[in-house]
């Protein structure tokens, strides 16, 4: 039996249909991947009595007769209110204070850790990336391979030692020591290698002639780095900053184990803590998930080009 060869018409039909099929498949895949997020959003806007229904309803829009009607939707922000817990307070700027632990304690703490470590990573990876990109010195290659290798080392295996170090440092009674310094140092230590790698890649793309012109005009190497290379490599440095920010924001286990004072703990500890407190109030947990995930998701969507560029160009992994 001879298989029929496809005729030119077959090819033409196929070419016309193909984008539709591909788009259809992609829409199905994206919808499936977004499903957990969509369901969480829907849960977060439900009222308690709609969360605790059996069988559960996707959208709380059914009337007493069980018919779906848009006008019957009972969406509520009760979950969000309970996470944020605003209380009227005349002395504060907006007329109310956020009394939920999440927003009064954990979010400011995490912002501090994330901004401090990202800022320092920005500076350190700029300096080290410049050295790797522009200077040839003994041991450079070995050091770069070592940095690349460290990029892959996860926090997990160092946790016990870091925990002991935190205990020792607390006992040592160094004047001015604060647990926050240690956790920021830990975050820098784990974010820096990859950042150096990204930044070095971006520095490499900047022509040396620009700096040479600056040297001739009497600029020092640091001056050239600051005035010429840094502005041109801003996308790379920004990518290092953003990646570090997102990773620190999302980090859980180090923050949980290395910080002892409750008032210094991070958002991810707060999320974990929610699990034990609000076991029946699913709409509160869902609202907290949305509130804590939203900032980094929005940040990512706004800066996705920078992210993708850094990940495909600077990635270890390629």
């Amino acid at each position: 039996m001879q298989a029929r060869l496809p005729s030119p018409q077959d090819y033409a039909t196929r070419r016309r249909l193909r984008p539709w099929l591909t788009n259809g498949a992609m829409i199905a895949i994206v919808a499936l991947l977004m499903l957990p997020i969509a369901l969480t959003l829907s849960t977060s806007f439900k009222r308690e009595q709609d969360v605790l229904r059996r069988p559960p309803v996707l959208l709380p829009c059914d009337g007493p007769d069980g018919q779906f009607r848009l006008s019957q939707c009972r969406f509520d922000i009760e979950g969000y209110e309970r996470v944020i817990a605003p209380r009227p307070d005349v002395s504060s700027l907006l007329g109310f204070r956020l009394t939920g632990r999440m927003f009064s304690t954990y979010v400011p703490n995490t912002l501090l850790y994330a901004l401090a470590s990202s800022g320092l990573v920005f500076v350190m990876s700029g300096l080290a990336g410049y050295a790797f990109s522009r200077y040839r010195f003994r041991g450079r290659r070995a050091l770069m391979v070592a940095i690349l290798a460290i990029t892959g080392i996860p926090l997990l295996t160092n946790l016990l030692a870091l925990y002991q170090m935190a205990v020792d440092l607390r006992k040592a009674g160094i004047p001015g020591y604060d647990e926050r310094m240690f956790i920021i140092a830990v975050y820098i230590g784990f974010q820096l290698p990859f950042s150096v790698w990204i930044v070095k890649g971006f520095f490499d793309t900047i022509p040396r002639e620009l700096e040479e012109a600056a040297f001739i005009d009497g600029c020092t190497p640091i001056g050239a780095l600051w005035r010429i290379v840094v502005p041109l490599a801003m996308p790379g440095l920004l990518a290092a900053f953003l990646l570090c920010f997102v990773n620190v924001w999302n980090e859980f286990i180090a923050g949980y184990l290395l910080i002892t004072k409750r008032e210094l703990r991070t958002v991810m500890f707060g999320m974990y803590d929610f699990l034990s407190q609000n076991i029946i109030n699913y709409q509160v947990v869902a609202a907290a998930c949305v509130l804590i995930a939203a900032p980094v998701v929005i940040l990512f969507l706004l800066t996705r080009r920078t992210f993708f560029q850094a990940m495909t160009e600077g990635a270890v992994k390629g």
Binding site: L33, P36, L39, N250, M271, A286, A293, V296, V297, F300
Partner: peptide, 23 residues
């Protein structure tokens, strides 16, 4: 599509665990 697919990557593992747990 890429932007949407990438959202789970930005979501913390702790939050992913809670979200999948609630379901």
């Amino acid at each position: 599509y890429i932007s949407l697919i990438f959202i789970p990557w930005v979501i913390a593992d702790v939050i992913a665990g809670l979200v999948f747990g609630l379901l």
